[in-house]
Design a protein around this nucleic acid. Structure first.
Length: 894
RNA sequence: GGGAGCUUAGCUCAGCUGGUUCAGAGCAUCUGCCUUACAAGCAGAGGGUCACUGGUUCGAACCCAGUAGUUCCCACCA
């Protein structure tokens, strides 16, 4: 191995290596997992939206998964990471609709079958993008296991589960007020509504009061408005006035007690509606009078049910005014809000308008303002079925990391609402309910089975024209089965895969979908396997920008991960993502983290260049003391560090594990070890040292591999001749061997010595090239002889001598009770040395005083633990002897 | 409106059983170096009233109470 330093570029170039090694790993089947006698370690990917592209959240999420998978693979587990995608009904359907629109095709002009054809074409074209992007990141998924939530087997599982839950009585159908997305044209679940605070206007509007039989004319209205014979309501949604069917006040409200039996007149439509009394009303809010619109507000709906009010649905599914509104028909609700406010004003109805902050629900998927709407939907009863999933988290069978999410989870699960599972979309699993022309229905897997069921129920039903429910199921109704369905646990409940891999080990996901997905997977797991789907749930944070804003397309504050990887290398970005992201904490992302990652890769690359560049002595030579000490130290230090790193991993402290690795490599290996053993320029290195170093380097690369898979694989193959199957990805994780604490302590003293000498050079402007000597006030026998050579080497010290008296014209320092002197001759600044010593003495006296105060406190001595007291006593004597030495030095200075 | 969390160096965060890992790390900053692996680097240095107030304790960043700020979750006040 000759000097090839010139041939190796000074900076690591990831461009070729990343694709090369990824392909190599795949070609050799290193990601593949099939059941065998080893213990499995399994992760199912949170399936990204099939039409999605990689964003920073995915990067964080998948990097963590890959780090865990790679580490466990190296530790000898049968590591299996199952990839796949989610069909994401609303999002995908919206994208397909938009694309068709560009082509001039309206969804409503297409049959369901034709629309689905377009959707599948779209899926085939764009569906793989995100998974391809994950390859760039280095994700070591078992691609042969790639699943899709809408593929035949998984869809069948969804349908079977629906039928099963229906038969168990958990699923029911009913008219309810649901969250309607007027853009997606579908109902969404409560969890898919995001409440945001917005600036609104609160309109105070007069409704003229009438008696039951009093005639309504233009004149009477004008008159009543003028004289104030009105009741004033306050609303932020004047466009819903047309659908009002009552005005509600509190029964105890003195202002309105005289209104019993009276009626209010709705503007424009001139409908008389009753004044009703209900203690739901907050008297203090607005005027204490509430307009009631049962069709467009959940509270009003409840009031309507209670008081038997008429329901007038004035807003159509697309958010435009319906025929029933009578005015503004076909115009958008927000346009109408402005228009009607103006018209009411002109007609004299408006009393005043105030600025007002309120919360408005937005659709998670389309960001459209949610419209509460009455409709027929399917629901899953959650109370009983969710019980085991709650218990599992509370009793620790399933761990949430970090634990702080247990409270949130508990609160949600104890107050869980029934789950609206139907969606008015086509892209998804169509609900297996079949209707006859009178609206009777049965739930059955196929039309034939449905017909049979109808026959059994009542032969008089017309089964000629059975029609399947138009709606599809919520996407989460398929993804909640994911940990089971990816192993075909529904299709074939006793197959080898499901028995081997289920329950999986870790789930890595975002806290945002704790309820959407995690809770529901737990529910499905217990319901269908009688077992948890996973043991640990690692909840990542949200990736935010430097200002703390969530990264999003709309804000344009999210870098493209692919660009980032091109700029900083995949390894660099992986490290960057994890440098500061403890579990559950949001990650304030900054490109400088990736830069740090890239720099780290470069550091390792240069360590490789150094080692690779050495000329090795052909024969083994006996080790020098310094060489022997260096090797012994790094062996000890490596095991100590690895023990810590393993511990961090076991507690899912990912950034700590990474930082431990970072420091082991950068500080211990590069900054200390390599400098200690580095041969003089132009001289060869001892073969023994070289072999030991190579061995250390290989172990270090292994520990780095989960974080930086590409560069470690590249170097692994460059530092030694290897069979192409001998890859670091499948190499064995180093074992922790016992190490000597006392040796490491002695090394630490050596480190302090070196740093003190360097400090002296820096503070006194002594060039590193200038040779110095060192005297140690100690008897020679006690010395750490193996380190002396290293002190000489690292500090450019020509000789070390042992003395019994203080050295004149020297600067000094003290380490663990031992005095060190560096003669400076004419360079010595006696006054400065004196000052330095005085400050040090003063500091130590202060310290001593505080310790003595403690020890003379009777309460402390009588109550503190003996070892604490012994420790204080040691501190005291150490400080005393230190002060004595410093004082002697001061006295000897002249 | 209810609940949970957070507040430690300029930034991002550790700090696990209250006391030798107790005031830490990385980055950033400052000073000096193009030293023969690496300026994407080396060496050195300076940064903190542990949010505030009180309590418990021989002893508090850590336990308790309150206050302020902040984030998140849940919830049907127009």
């Amino acid at each position: 191995m000759s000097n090839t330093l010139q041939d190796i570029p000074k900076t690591y170039d990831p461009k070729n290596t990343e694709d090369k090694w990824y392909k190599h790993w795949v070609d050799n089947g290193f990601f593949r997992s099939i059941p065998d006698e080893r213990e499995p370690y399994t992760i199912v990917i949170p399936p990204p939206n099939v039409t999605g592209v990689l964003h920073m959240g995915h990067m964080l999420n998948n990097t963590i998964q890959d780090v865990l998978i790679r580490m466990k693979r190296m530790q000898g587990y049968n590591a299996c990471w199952v990839p796949g995608t989610d069909h994401a009904s609303i999002a995908t359907e919206a994208k397909v609709v938009a694309l068709l629109k560009e082509q001039g095709i309206k969804k409503t002009d297409l049959s369901r079958e034709d629309f689905l054809k377009h959707a599948w074409t779209w899926k085939e074209k764009y569906g793989g993008i995100i998974l391809k992007q994950l390859e760039k990141l280095g994700a070591s998924c078992d691609w042969e296991r790639t699943r899709f939530t809408m593929e035949d087997d998984l869809s069948e599982a969804v349908i079977d589960v629906f039928i099963d839950l229906y038969n168990k009585g958990y699923i029911y159908r009913g008219v309810r007020m649901v969250n309607w997305d007027p853009q997606g044209l579908t109902a969404v679940s409560d969890e898919e509504v995001i409440h945001k605070e917005v600036n609104s206007k609160l309109y105070y509007c007069n409704y003229p009061l009438f008696d039951k039989d009093e005639e309504v004319t233009t004149d009477t209205i004008t008159n009543k408005l003028k004289t104030g014979n009105c009741i004033t309501i306050a609303t932020v949604r004047p466009e819903t006035i047309l659908g009002d069917t009552a005005v509600c006040v509190h029964p105890d409200d003195e202002r309105y007690k005289n209104l019993k039996g009276k009626f209010a007149l709705i503007p424009f439509v001139n409908r008389k509606v009753p004044i009703i009394f209900d203690d739901y009303i907050t008297m203090e809010f607005g005027t204490g009078a509430l307009k009631v619109t049962p069709a467009h507000d959940i509270n009003d709906y409840n009031l309507g049910v209670k008081h038997g009010l008429e329901v007038i649905d004035t807003i159509a599914a697309d958010g435009k005014m319906s025929e029933a509104a009578k005015f503004y028909i076909g115009e958008d609700r927000f346009t109408v809000r402005k228009k009607i406010a103006k018209d009411l004003e002109e007609a004299g109805y408006i009393l005043k308008v105030e600025d007002y902050k309120n919360k408005v629900g937005y659709s998670e998927r389309t960001d459209a303002v949610i419209e509460p709407k009455l409709s027929m939907q399917w629901f899953l009863k959650m109370d009983t079925i969710s019980k085991p999933a709650l218990d599992a988290v509370l009793n620790g069978e399933v761990k949430l990391i970090p634990e702080k999410f247990i409270n949130t989870y508990k609160h949600w699960m104890e107050n869980v609402h029934d789950w609206c599972i139907s969606r008015q979309l086509w892209w998804g699993q169509q609900i297996p309910a079949w209707y006859d022309d009178k609206g009777n229905f049965v739930v059955a897997k196929t039309k034939t089975e449905a017909e049979a069921k109808f026959k059994i129920q009542n032969s008089s039903f017309n089964i000629q024209n059975l029609k399947q429910d138009e709606d599809v199921l919520d996407t989460w109704f398929s993804s909640w089965l994911w940990p089971i369905s990816v192993f075909d646990g529904f299709k074939d409940p006793d197959n080898k895969d499901i028995n081997y891999y289920y329950p999986t080990n870790d789930l890595i996901t975002a806290p945002e979908i704790l309820f959407f997905w995690v809770a529901r997977m737990l529910i499905a797991g217990y319901e269908y396997r009688g077992k948890k789907p996973f043991s640990n749930v690692y909840l990542t944070g949200i990736v935010r920008d430097k200002q703390g804003r969530k990264m999003s397309k709309q804000l344009g504050n999210s870098p493209d991960p692919i660009d980032l990887m091109a700029k900083y290398s995949a390894d660099g970005v992986r490290v960057g993502m994890l440098l500061s992201s403890p579990a559950g904490n949001d990650l304030l992302f900054d490109e400088s983290y990736c830069e740090q990652g890239r720099n780290f890769a470069n550091k390792v690359w240069n360590a490789f260049r150094l080692i690779k560049g050495w000329e090795v002595e052909p024969q083994s030579q006996p080790l020098s003391l310094g060489e022997g000490g260096s090797i012994e130290w790094f062996e000890n230090r490596f095991n100590q560090a690895l023990e810590e790193i393993n511990d961090h991993y076991s507690k899912y402290r990912m950034s700590d594990a990474l930082m431990g690795t970072y420091k082991l490599v950068w500080d211990d290996f590069c900054a200390w070890y390599l400098e200690m053993i580095k041969p003089e320029f132009g001289k060869p290195i001892s073969k023994t040292v070289y072999d030991a170093t190579l061995n250390f380097f290989e172990r270090i690369l292994k520990v780095m591999h989960p974080w930086m898979p590409f560069i470690t694989e590249e170097i692994w193959h460059l530092i030694a001749e290897r069979n192409e199957k001998d890859c670091i990805i499948i190499s064995k994780w180093p074992e922790v061997k016992s190490y000597s604490e006392s040796f490491l302590i002695r090394f630490n003293e050596f480190e302090q010595t070196v740093m003190s000498i360097r400090n002296i050079r820096a503070s006194k402007n002594i060039s590193p090239k200038e040779v110095l000597t060192l005297s140690i006030k100690q008897s020679e026998n006690d010395a750490d002889i193996e380190f002396n050579q290293l002190i000489q080497k690292l500090c450019n010290i020509s000789s070390i001598s042992y003395v019994s008296d203080n050295v004149d014209n020297a600067t000094s320092f003290l380490i663990n009770g031992v005095e060190f002197f560096i003669p400076l001759n004419d360079k010595i600044d006696v006054a400065a040395e004196r000052e330095k010593l005085k400050t040090e003495i003063e500091y130590n006296r202060g310290f001593l005083e505080s310790v003595e105060a403690k020890l003379s406190n009777q309460n402390f001595v009588s109550r503190a633990k003996p070892e604490i007291i012994a420790n204080e006593q040691k501190k005291k004597s150490d400080a005393e002897s230190k002060i004595k030495l410093l004082e002697e030095q001061l006295a000897g200075l002249n």
